[in-house]
């Protein structure tokens, strides 16, 4: 075991994958020599050579397409998109190609690809470095979306994703790269050093895709979320004294409906939360499915916490980001309903 932050854990996952399988390679803008603007690929070019970790031209569509061609040829490319906000130029290659090649070729060609990308808000990044575009991809059959919330899961989920035979969009909550975040803008910076999930095995292990985790057991209300907001929800439960059960989804597609509905049937109340603008965000899918599966156990309407239906603001970031107080208010209101 070693103490790692999320960047180190992701770097370690790539290192282990590249060590174990010569077909794994990684590339992206600034990902080669320099090791990425967030340093997730640091040291890999030096260790594994120019042709296994390299700089790509600033053309996200071409980066995705290169991965498509390589994967069809039998490699396991890990492509980095510098920020999730810049994944849109690649959307045709991801949505129309990568996600459907297994299906449209009836299994003759497969796409073992990971597209990694730093994601989400809370870093004063303004509208072009803060987006949470996961719902664009959860809407697409044939790709899976994975979002870890801590170093241990980040490494295990990235290794599982690289070993998966299907394309995976792997979003990395950059606000918690260096430490968990309790959702209070002016709070002290935290570190992963004292966090149990900051203990990361150095070698190979995987964390199950398609499995959510109950990260806090409780009886009053179920909070279903992922990424940075997992920590905000946990902090809100402690602060409010409301005995919330918090579920870290980890894999969004396919999401673990069993873990969710077991919990909601127990608590009878549910909050679903994401950073992205509310309308058509992933919480809408969760709310719809939970009411279908758990309607007769629900004692209050499902409550959604989300970003506003505006572009992500810069100066007023903390009025936009679903912080601790919004979780506390929601927990109160949902548990007060008779």
């Amino acid at each position: 075991m070693a103490k790692m932050n999320m960047i180190q854990a992701l770097n370690s996952a790539l290192d282990v994958a590249m060590e174990n399988d010569p077909n794994v390679l990684c590339f992206g803008e600034d990902a080669g020599y320099f090791g990425g603007v967030f340093r997730v690929t640091a040291g890999l070019q030096k260790k594994y050579g120019l042709d296994r970790c390299f700089d790509a031209p600033i053309n996200e569509a071409a980066i995705a397409a290169m991965a498509v061609g390589m994967a069809a040829k039998g490699l396991r490319p890990v492509a980095e998109i510098q920020f999730a906000d810049y994944i849109f130029p690649a959307i045709d290659q991801i949505v129309s190609e990568m996600s459907r090649i297994r299906y449209r070729s009836a299994g003759q060609f497969t796409q073992p690809i990971v597209v990694r990308s730093p994601w989400g808000g809370g870093i004063r990044g303004g509208q072009t470095h803060s987006m949470s575009p996961e719902a664009f991809f959860t809407h697409v059959p044939g790709i899976k979306v994975v979002i870890p919330s801590n170093p241990y899961d980040a490494k295990g989920l990235l290794l599982a994703s690289i070993e998966s035979d299907d394309p995976i969009i792997f979003f990395e909550p950059k606000r918690i790269y260096n430490g968990p975040f309790d959702g209070q803008a002016d709070g002290a910076l935290q570190s992963w050093a004292n966090h149990p999930k900051g203990e990361v095995p150095e070698g190979h292990y995987t964390v199950d895709l398609n499995k959510a985790e109950v990260v806090r057991e409780g009886s009053a209300v179920t909070v279903v979320t992922y990424g940075t907001l997992v920590h905000v929800a946990l902090a809100a439960a402690e602060k409010s004294g409301i005995d919330a059960e918090v579920i870290d989804l980890k894999t969004l597609t396919p999401y673990d409906i069993e873990t969710i509905s077991d919990s909601v049937k127990k608590t009878g109340r549910c909050i679903v939360a994401n950073e992205a603008p509310r309308t058509s965000s992933f919480s809408a899918e969760l709310a719809a499915q939970i009411q279908e599966d758990c309607f007769w156990s629900l004692e209050a309407p499902i409550h959604r916490i989300a970003g506003w239906d505006t572009p992500y603001p810069h100066a007023h970031e903390w009025s936009y980001f679903p912080g601790q107080q919004r979780f506390i208010n929601a927990m109160k209101s949902v548990t007060e309903t008779v």
């Binding site: 390679l25 290169m66 498509v68 061609g69 069809a72 040829k73 129309s96 190609e97």
Partner: peptide, 22 residues
């Protein structure tokens, strides 16, 4: 596999070609 989305195969072919070199 032929795509109906025009042109997508061009950069994919480069990825395949790099894979062959690899």
């Amino acid at each position: 596999s032929i795509s109906g989305n025009l042109g997508t195969q061009f950069p994919q072919a480069v990825g395949w070609a790099m894979g062959a070199r690899y």
